[in-house]
Amino acid sequence: MNNIDWSLLRSFLAVVETGSLSAAATQLSATQPTLSRHIRELEATVGVSLFTRSARGLDPTEAALSLVDDARAMGEAAQTLTLKAQGRSQQLTGTVRITASVVVAGLILPPILAGLRRAEPNIQIEVVASDLAQNLLRQDADIAIRMFKPTQGALIARKLGEAPIGLFGHQSYFARRGRVDGRDDLLTHDVIGFDRSDAIIKGYAALGLSATRQSFPIRCDDHLVYWNLLLAGAGLGFAQVPLASRYPELEQVPVDMNVPPLPVWLVLHEEVRSNARVRRVANHLSATLGDFFQDARAGNHRADRKPVRPNRP
Rank of each mutant, 00 (worst) to 15 (best):
H170F: 01
R146M: 12
H170Q: 10
R158D: 08
L160R: 00
G161S: 02
A141K: 08
I156L: 13
S130N: 00
S172N: 11
N135Y: 06
I145A: 05
R146E: 15
L132K: 10
G166T: 12
P150I: 08
I165Q: 15
G161Y: 03
I156D: 05
A133L: 09
A154W: 01
A157C: 02
A141F: 03
G161M: 01
L160Q: 01
F148C: 06
L136G: 05
D140R: 08
H170P: 00
A141M: 03
Q139L: 13
A129C: 04
S130G: 01
Q152S: 08
S130H: 01
Q139F: 11
K149I: 03
A141L: 02
K159T: 04
R146Q: 15
P164K: 05
F174V: 04
A163I: 09
L137G: 09
L136T: 11
R146T: 11
A163R: 09
F148I: 04
A163Y: 12
K159V: 04
P150A: 02
L160E: 00
R146L: 15
R138W: 12
R138Q: 15
P164S: 05
L167N: 07
M147R: 15
L155G: 01
P164L: 03
Q134L: 12
A163Q: 10
A163V: 09
A133D: 10
T151K: 11
G153M: 02
K159S: 06
D131F: 07
G161N: 03
S130P: 02
Q171P: 00
R146G: 02
G166W: 14
G161E: 02
Y173A: 00
D142P: 06
S172W: 06
A157Q: 05
Q134H: 07
L155V: 02
G166R: 15
Y173Q: 03
I156M: 08
A157W: 11
F168W: 15
S172M: 06
R138S: 11
I143R: 05
Q139S: 13
L155A: 00
A133F: 07
D131M: 02
A144S: 15
A154I: 00
T151V: 12
A163F: 13
Q171N: 06
R138N: 14
F148S: 15
K149C: 08
F168A: 02
F174R: 04
L137K: 08
